[in-house]
Design a protein around this nucleic acid. Sequence first.
RNA 1: GCGCGGUUAGCUCAGUGGUAGAGCAUUUGCUUCACACGCAAGGGGUCGCAGGUUCAAACCCUGCACCGCGCACCA
Length: 1198
Amino acid sequence: MSEISKAYEPQSVEDKWYQFWLDGKFFVANEHSAKPAYSIVIPPPNVTGVLTLGHVLNNTIQDILCRKARMEGKEVLWLPGTDHAGIATQVQVERALKKEGKIKHRDDLGREKFLEEVWKWKNEKGGIIIQQLKKLGASCDWTRERFTMDPEYSRCVQRVFVDLYKKGLIYRGKRMVNWCPASLTALSDEEVVMKEQKSFLYYFKVEVAEIPGTFLTIATTRPETIPGDTAVAVNPKDPRYAHLIGKHVVRPLPAELPREQKLIPIIGDEHVDFEFGTGVLKVTPAHDKADFEIGLWHKLAAIEVIAANGQMNDAAGADLRGLDRFKARKVAVEKLTELGALEKEEPYTNNVGFSERADVPIEPRLSEQWFLKYPGVEASKSCVAHEGYKSAVNLSQKTVRIVSATGKEISGKSIHDLRKAALAYARKHRIIGVSFKNEDSGIEIRVGRQSLSHAFSHLGVANILAVAVLPELIRSAVWISSEPHEPHNPMVKLVHRFIAALSLAGELHSVLITAKEFYDGTVLYDHRTKKITFGGKSLEAHLPKEKLDTQPAPNACINVNNLLSSVNVGKMQFHPQRWAKVYDHWMGGLQDWCVSRQLWWGHRIPVWTKHFANEKEYWGEPESLQDELSDFLQMLNDSVPSHHGFPCVKFLWDQQLEKGLQEYRPDKDGDGFTIFIGIEPSFSAAHDYPLVEKIEKAGFTQDPDVLDTWFSSWLWPFATMGWPEQTDTLKKFYPTTDLVTGPDIIFFWVARMIMAGYEYMDELPFQNVYFTGIIRDKQGRKMSKSLGNSPDPLDLIAKFGADALRFGVMRAAPLGQDILFDEQNVELGRNFCNKLWNACRFRQMVGSADLPIQGEIDPKFLTSDDKWILLKLDTAIREVTIALNEYKFSDATATLYRFFWSEYCDWYVEASKAVLGSARVPRADSGVSPESSEASGATPDAATGMVALPENFSARKANTLAVIDFVLSHTIRLFHPFLPFITEELWHGMGYSTDMPDNQGGKTIMFAPWPKPLNDDFKVHYSLAASHLKTVDLKDECKLDEQIERDMFGRQKLVIEIRNIRSQNGIASNKKLKLVYHGSADINPHEKEILKLLVGADCIEHKFDYHPAKGEPVVYPSFGGKIFIPREGLIDVAAEKTRLTKELEKIESEISKVEQKLANPNFAQKVPANVLEEHKQRLVEWQNKLAHTKAALDAMRG
RNA sequence: GCGCGGUUAGCUCAGUGGUAGAGCAUUUGCUUCACACGCAAGGGGUCGCAGGUUCAAACCCUGCACCGCGCACCA
């Protein structure tokens, strides 16, 4: 830092240091290191994406965590990479090609050519976001960068696909799927977003065929699907229509069909809500999920009337054929009107599913797809910790350790022991819990892995209805299980019975049940209000009143929570924890995942198929096929290294699609069947492999579909580390430590990674998940390209610097809240960097060449300011460390800001100028008046009138510099995770790196030790504490740090008061004051110098006897005496009077507040002693002030 | 419908029962020898509403209102 510019210029240092870090290989993780591991896998951004503020937030957090971990001596792996983002990328490239005029549709190029274009695009744009992350300072191990379509990664994806098939979890099925007519692909449920739509509800009538002249009126939002209706459904309990079941109606469309072809049955189905519309439902099995179910049940035909592209097909009839589905809706309404069938239409608001990507309404469509039943579900369900227990539950090896929320630890030899303890506890306290075993609903409350009945049977307790559970245990030992797909009505009934049972038992008084199967509805009995609520509503809504009347008098409280099925319980922490509930809810209602996509860009499904028209055709084939395959098998075994661990070939076959669905196959092709051959990794990716060639020669073709992008993303934590081999990287860094991501992909990604982790690594993929907020603009709107409200982070970096951007975003990002982004945040970050820069610049300027950097601090010369700032540093280190451990990044930045700016710069540095800035500094330890030059031991220079340097001056100055260096070298390290660039620059520039060992900060601040709170030895040595805390008797000895704090606080109050008087009296800031101190002994000379400096006085004259002018302002220092502030010329008596009167009012109001409290007899009686004392003390202080202020006012009158 | 957040200064937000806080914005005064990307001093709040518990409530309990989000949905 030889050339120090006045302002920090980030542009001139950032690139330099990033290159320095890369050159030094400081980001590279060593899997053979002996250091403890810390790892994060990056949520891979879309390969063709550009950096957004969301990425900035996300990756800054990860970088902070990684950099702190490095400084703590951990071996850090931050594994970066990108995602191929199937649909997004394909759409993007397609659009670009169209724009370039290369194609009108992707079919123009064909699959192979189109994919070439995508790869080209990827190779051109793929690096952009990576470069941008580097600009931000991200300390990723770039040598390990991965892409989800890297050959090795693809092999993992294929391997998993085949493996899951073999486990029976992947199947092919003809199902209702969410079809996107724009991208022409199926979507998973998660890719569909519901949007409210204003539309119309159309009422049209149909004639009952068997009873001419009788009409049914049907309400629908989708008249265009009428040609696809194959039934009309009514509720069999509906008296209006029940008698019509079994008869038929005439479907109005397509109008041109003969009447007999339009007869559809009237069926009875419980699903029909007779409150809604007219109570008559049209059933369109081919275009509605619910109707499909009804169709299955009643064996109805399905007529597809909407084609894949969203246009009506031939079956829709002459009027609608070829029309877009929305145009068709209008036309259908016109047609109904024309036929006289339309009765009315009314405005109606309903929710319609939209394709998240293409933003068009999805079409439920019958289609043959690959589905996955999720693996690893059981372990995944319970692994996320909930509020209430601290996660230290370990049921393995039959030993149990549970730490309750209260910190109380319960230990037992086994779950069994705990149950016994629970029972004993319950007997003693006569507390009752309840277990249900309900065969009908399959609902059971269990303890541990066993049902309660089983668990307690050996104790002779039969038909357990009531079982006691230790309150601390309940949260972790009881859960209610049921089939996730069961309708939850029986559960609710059960809860009612539960409450009734408790009520009758007359023992249990407050119950809180939380079970995911109840959608976390709660049952709560409040003993104060004597009210029970369930799911937020009063119990009256659920239970007959007479049951409530039996409620006993309350005196106990029990919590019952769902939980614990395995050793994984609570091992993973979500931050903030509330997302655990969202996760649980989703896990509780898992639906099979449609994993195939009708796209080109992605992992092509490694399955080859051939359809056989009949058995003969089939039997003609297999021998040769078998022979060929066994040849290849042999060949592959020879050529593939055995440790690879992949079985080479596996038949996948499926003689029939799901039987029940046959009727819905659009291509009724007789009794044919299909053989599927799944090919495992290493081969499917490369088509020139002979195996594939042979298979294809035999007439098999590869499934044209690709896998959902998330089907590759969910393997990210281990597929990036060399899985399926047990690599050293995996051994060292899996499970990863933290995952940082947005809550919007909790289902898409987080939950699925957890399941994959358990399935393939037998272990959770990460220990902590931090969910960031969503970045919004100042008005709270989501950032979006169309709104143009998303600033380019690179522009911000160019304007303010990467550190400023990081700091600004972190400061504005409280845990778990959305962030309203404003450029002012970044400006604040920039200002802060500048402050840091200048504070260091100040240190450079006051130092001199002959003084060492980071000299030893000599306790002998330590002033109270020095001690104070060291204690504040200690506090800051503690606060920042705690905040980071709790993922409270905005708290950490707030602490750093406060400490550095308000405490260090505003007070400490300013005061230190008394020592550093002027030569006329007397000895602090002399204890004599500096105004008397004889006493100070220095003689005035005859020529200048200046006092010569006391002998020990340079030692004192050096000591102050040493304290400054101590504080700065710690502060810079505390800042490093947040502000990597400027801190590296300062670390070297200030010379703090020179004393450090190479691997601990000598080369780079990245490995400098993370500051630790000052220890007792340090504090005692420097008189920051009276003695080691454990030995000190607090009663006798006033704690030193408290004394230091008090003194400093007193001085700050005094300084502020004098400054205030200056300001209120209109004394210009640049005008030096001449103060008078009136007291029995003069102020400590060192203190006096500082006071002069801080309030802008050129002298404080000590007088034993002083008669102030009328209205002369006066302040009362905490160390006694009075300080007068004389004004040359006229005193503005009125202004001073106003000031004092105002102050008086405030004092009086405070006094009355405290007095009122103290006057309350209950207060003195019930309040804790220390609080009482505090209040009394406060009263005394205010009363003192009152006296002073009154005196001052009096003086003004007199 | 169910659930989850939120409601504190003009704005963005801290604040887990004991004297209402920060940053920004704003007003005033300062080219004070680190920093005008700065220094100093001020002004500004019945803590969404209503009850309850408590000696004491922004904080705990109950209800309500409004804002945001998620899930599930009836055509």
